[in-house]
Amino acid sequence: MTDISPFGIRRAAIIRATPERIWEEFTTHERMSAWYGTGHELTHYEPRVGGRVETTFGDVPNVARGRVLVYNPCRELTFEQRWIGPDWTGREWAAPAKVTILLTPVAGGTLVELFHHGYDLLGGDPAEYLSGFEGGWDTHHLDALAVLVAA
């Protein structure tokens, strides 16, 4: 199993289906992009270790690309996501970020965990990436806690 870097975000849901059923959604480009291609487009997806994964957005092609690192049916999918060219700060990434999806059978269904992680290896300030990818709003509580603890 992939080591989940603490510099990342996690989203989770319990889905009322078996891991086998859920994994079917990861088995082709068409099925994967039907759920994962939100906010951006999943332009390429090869469901095998070493397969290429590519997402794009915007009028000017903004591309993130990587390889599948783990393809462990019904359990784990991990692929790299490396920004191509300088990001919005003008920085070229030293290493790719990673997307890890874990499936764990639980009573009544499957725990689906989605991690976007490895911000400590990109080369910039991990805190900046963390707050950015969290979307800002749901870190407000932690920001408030940090202020209280520092007081």
């Binding site: 975000i9 889905i15 099925r31 994962y36 989605l114 950015g132 990818f133 800002g136």
Partner: peptide, 26 residues
């Protein structure tokens, strides 16, 4: 604002992606 847009587009909207997966699998 530009930075925020970049982040929002670079990664999928995670909650939305999970909701999509749920809809399809269930």
């Amino acid at each position: 604002e530009v930075t925020q847009q970049w982040f929002a587009k670079f990664a999928p909207l995670w909650e939305e992606a999970l909701a999509n997966l749920r809809r399809r699998a269930e």
